[in-house]
Amino acid sequence: AVSDRLIGRKGVVMEAISPQNSGLVKVDGETWRATSGTVLDVGEEVSVKAIEGVKLVVEKLE
Rank of each mutant, 00 (worst) to 15 (best):
V39Q: 13
S22D: 14
S3R: 06
M14I: 10
G23T: 02
A1C: 06
R5S: 09
R5L: 14
V25G: 00
G29V: 06
D4S: 06
V58G: 01
G11P: 01
V27N: 00
K26Y: 08
E44N: 09
R5W: 14
T35F: 05
A50E: 07
K60R: 12
E59F: 07
E52Y: 11
A16M: 15
T38P: 02
I51F: 07
V25I: 07
G53A: 05
W32I: 04
G37L: 12
I17E: 02
G43W: 07
E30S: 07
A16T: 13
V13S: 02
Q20C: 06
V48L: 02
V48P: 01
G29N: 10
V2T: 12
A34F: 03
R33E: 14
E45D: 10
S22H: 13
K10A: 09
G23I: 02
A50D: 08
G8H: 04
V12C: 05
E15D: 08
I51T: 07
D4P: 04
V46T: 02
E45N: 12
G53H: 05
R9P: 02
D28Q: 11
V2H: 11
R5P: 06
S22K: 05
Q20R: 07
T31N: 10
V39W: 09
L61Q: 09
G23L: 03
V57E: 04
A1H: 10
K55S: 14
E44I: 13
G29S: 10
L6E: 02
L40F: 08
L40K: 02
V39S: 14
K55H: 15
K10N: 15
N21R: 08
V54D: 15
I51Q: 05
T35E: 13
V57K: 06
E44T: 15
S36M: 01
V57A: 05
V57D: 03
V42S: 09
L24P: 01
V46M: 03
M14F: 08
S18L: 06
G23S: 01
V42A: 08
R33C: 05
S22Y: 13
A34H: 01
G8E: 03
V42R: 14
K55D: 10
G53D: 06
R5T: 13
G8Y: 03
E52H: 14
G29D: 10
V27Y: 02
I17T: 05
R33H: 09
R9Y: 09
G11R: 00
A1I: 13
V57I: 11
R33F: 14
V13Y: 00
S36K: 01
K55Q: 14
S47R: 15
K10P: 13
V42N: 06
E15A: 15
E45H: 14
S22F: 11
G11T: 02
K55M: 11
G37V: 14
Q20T: 12
G53W: 04
G29H: 14
P19Y: 07
A1L: 07
L56S: 01
D4E: 10
K26S: 08
S22T: 10
W32T: 02
G11M: 02
G23F: 03
V25Q: 00
E59D: 09
G23Q: 01
E45L: 15
G8V: 02
T31K: 12
L61G: 06
V12I: 10
R9H: 11
G43I: 02
I51S: 04
E62P: 09
V48S: 01
W32R: 04
G29P: 04
G53K: 04
L40M: 09
R5A: 11
K26C: 06
E45C: 06
E44G: 04
G37E: 10
V57S: 05
E30C: 06
T35K: 14
P19E: 06
V2I: 15
K10T: 09
D41I: 10
D4L: 08
L6P: 04
R33S: 13
V13I: 08
R5Y: 13
V48G: 01
A34G: 04
K49Y: 08
L6R: 03
K10S: 07
S36G: 06
T38W: 10
L40G: 01
V39H: 14
G11L: 01
S36D: 01
Q20P: 12
T35D: 09
S18A: 13
G53T: 04
A1Q: 12
V13G: 00
K26N: 12
T31F: 13
I7D: 02
I51D: 02
E44V: 11
W32F: 12
S18T: 15
V42H: 06
V42F: 07
E59K: 05
